[in-house]
């Protein structure tokens, strides 16, 4: 932990960027079918390919884009769409607060520009990286830009070919996103305590999803998991890492 800052400073640059790209590589196979699906659904709702590209580039949050499509109708209920988007994206507050202290040497400009593309997958891989050392801007950019390009290309392609593709659930591709997230969840496994956190958030999310409409289940699940972790916190832990070192890093 102590040498983190040195490491992240030395490794900054093209190598870190390339590492980010290669770390993201397997996720291309999860993001592409979801992007194609988004584009195809958007075309059905009457959006033009350019509108699909604009939404993908400016919003760049898959979950809320799908939610917006769900609400898309004529006349366009823009206020409802905007509010629902905000609600489902509230999880980003926790995500950015969690990632912010784990960044390497980022300038304020890098932070405020970089977090524009803080999509779930970008955040998750940055958190995974942060388990070993601080996340550098180059690494983050490598991950983020690869997802950005993949997402735009796939969703525009989806909006152009749309109807030809048919139902993606036929190929099990609707499950690709779930499978990806399960793999990412397992990456955070640190023993029994993690199990309790996951059980609490899973249960809260399923129950909230069943009884409360909208995207509240994500917030409810996140809060339940956080509470479970707080309850389990041990004041006198048997950790390898000394508090003084943790403070330094």
């Amino acid at each position: 932990m102590k040498s983190n800052q040195n490491k992240s400073a030395v490794n900054a640059g093209p190598n870190e960027f390339f590492l980010g790209v290669t770390t993201f590589f397997p996720l291309i196979f999860a993001a592409t079918p979801i992007g194609l699906l988004f584009g195809a659904l958007a075309a059905q709702k009457g959006m033009s390919p350019l509108e699909v590209l604009l939404m993908g580039s400016f919003v760049f949050a898959g979950g809320s884009q799908f939610l917006a499509l769900d609400l898309w109708s004529d006349p366009l209920p823009w206020l409802t769409i905007a509010f629902s988007t905000f609600l489902i994206n509230l999880r980003h507050v926790l995500m950015s607060a969690s990632l912010a202290p784990k960044l390497g040497h980022w300038t304020p400009l890098q932070k405020y520009l970089g977090f524009f593309i803080l999509a779930d997958e970008v955040w998750a891989l940055s958190e995974q990286r942060a388990m070993k050392q601080h996340t550098t801007f180059s690494f983050y950019l490598g991950v983020g830009l690869t997802l950005f390009v993949t997402w735009q290309a796939a969703s525009v392609a989806g909006s152009l070919i749309g109807a030809v593709m048919g139902d993606p659930s036929r190929y099990g591709l609707d499950f690709a996103f779930t499978a990806l997230f399960i793999c990412l969840v397992m990456g955070f496994w640190q023993g029994r305590k993690t199990g309790v956190v996951l059980a609490a958030s899973g249960l809260a999310a399923v129950l909230t999803h069943k009884f409360v409409p909208g995207a509240w289940y994500i917030i409810a699940g996140a809060i339940a998991g956080v509470i479970a972790a707080a309850i389990q916190y041990d004041d006198n832990p048997n950790r390898l890492q000394k508090p003084a070192e943790a403070l330094q890093s």
């Binding site: 926790l94 969840v185 496994w189 996951l198 958030s201 699940g221 998991g225 972790a229 916190y233």
Partner: peptide, 22 residues
């Protein structure tokens, strides 16, 4: 801090839980 560290797995779990378990 311990609570905040649970944020990543908790959010990922919440997003997939309805599809995965229900």
């Amino acid at each position: 801090e311990a609570a905040l560290q649970a944020v990543p797995p908790a959010i990922l779990m919440s997003v997939v839980a309805p599809t995965a378990f229900a």
